[in-house]
Amino acid sequence: MKVLDLQCRQAHVFEGWFASEDDFQDQRRRGLVQCPLCADAQIEKRLSAPRLNLGAREPAQRVGADAPHQAPAGATPSGVPATASPSMAAAVHGALPPALQAAWLELARKVVAHTEDVGAQFAQEARRMHYGEAEERAIRGEATPDEAMELLEEGIAVVPLLLPAAAKETLQ
């Protein structure tokens, strides 16, 4: 089993598990590998190194002329100050912090679990509910920008929300 660090064009970083490198390349070529946050299929592998926890202790920090170059106090290996907020670090690296990515995916899954997908009939169904022709319930679906603006002009509250494909299905 190969565990790969992957990244989409929007700099969302995630992990993928594949039987082999060939399996990853085949799935990527067929568009089966998608970002779980934005559903982007333009996925690239990131450099990653295995971490082996063999129970060894951290080496003692050397001091003096023979010590390796040290980063300035307060800086992390990435060059972002240790006191930087996660959003500042994300801005520097162009990516959301992993905890924020995970929270977004969890929220998206909750939206999917507690709404009915009406697909391309979203605008029509929202109108029917608004005008009392159908029972009110939580729905989601697809609408063009023009349809969404028309709904808002009619006083029908809608919120555009990009739901990643990973939120719509169970992970295996």
Rank of each mutant, 00 (worst) to 15 (best):
A103M: 07
A157D: 15
R28P: 03
L161H: 11
P164D: 09
A123G: 00
A82P: 08
L54H: 06
M129Y: 01
P81F: 01
D117V: 03
A103H: 04
D26C: 09
R128W: 09
Q34K: 15
D22I: 02
Q27M: 12
P81I: 02
E58V: 13
D66Q: 12
P145R: 06
A41Q: 07
M129C: 03
A41I: 05
G119D: 04
I156Y: 01
E153G: 09
A91T: 10
V63R: 07
F122W: 01
P68I: 00
A82V: 14
Q101V: 10
C35T: 08
E21A: 13
R51P: 00
A148H: 08
C38N: 07
R51E: 02
Q61C: 08
H93P: 00
I139T: 12
R28K: 13
D26G: 12
P98F: 02
R62S: 05
L52G: 06
A138N: 14
E142Y: 09
D66F: 07
L163D: 01
P97S: 10
R128E: 12
L52N: 10
D66H: 09
A84N: 10
L54D: 10
A103P: 02
E142M: 10
T144W: 03
Q34W: 07
L47Q: 14
G132F: 00
R46C: 15
P160D: 13
A95S: 03
D26K: 12
F122C: 00
Q70C: 08
A148I: 07
E125V: 15
L37S: 03
A120E: 12
E147C: 09
R46A: 08
V158I: 11
L47R: 15
V63W: 05
A60E: 12
A138H: 13
G79Q: 03
E147L: 06
H93S: 05
V92C: 09
G64K: 06
P97Y: 01
D40W: 07
A65G: 03
Q42E: 14
A126S: 02
A56G: 11
G141M: 04
F24K: 02
G119K: 03
P81T: 05
V159A: 14
A67F: 04
T115R: 10
A75N: 04
W104G: 11
A143M: 02
M149T: 15
H69N: 09
G79S: 03
G155C: 06
Y131I: 07
P77H: 09
A75S: 09
V118I: 00
K45T: 15
E150F: 03
Q25H: 13
R46F: 12
V92R: 11
P81S: 04
A157K: 15
R57A: 14
R29V: 11
R137D: 04
P160F: 09
F24G: 02
A120I: 05
A91I: 04
L96F: 10
F122P: 00
R62C: 02
S85A: 13
P98T: 08
A60K: 11
A82G: 13
I43E: 00
T115Y: 05
R30Q: 12
E21D: 15
A82S: 15
P160C: 07
A67T: 08
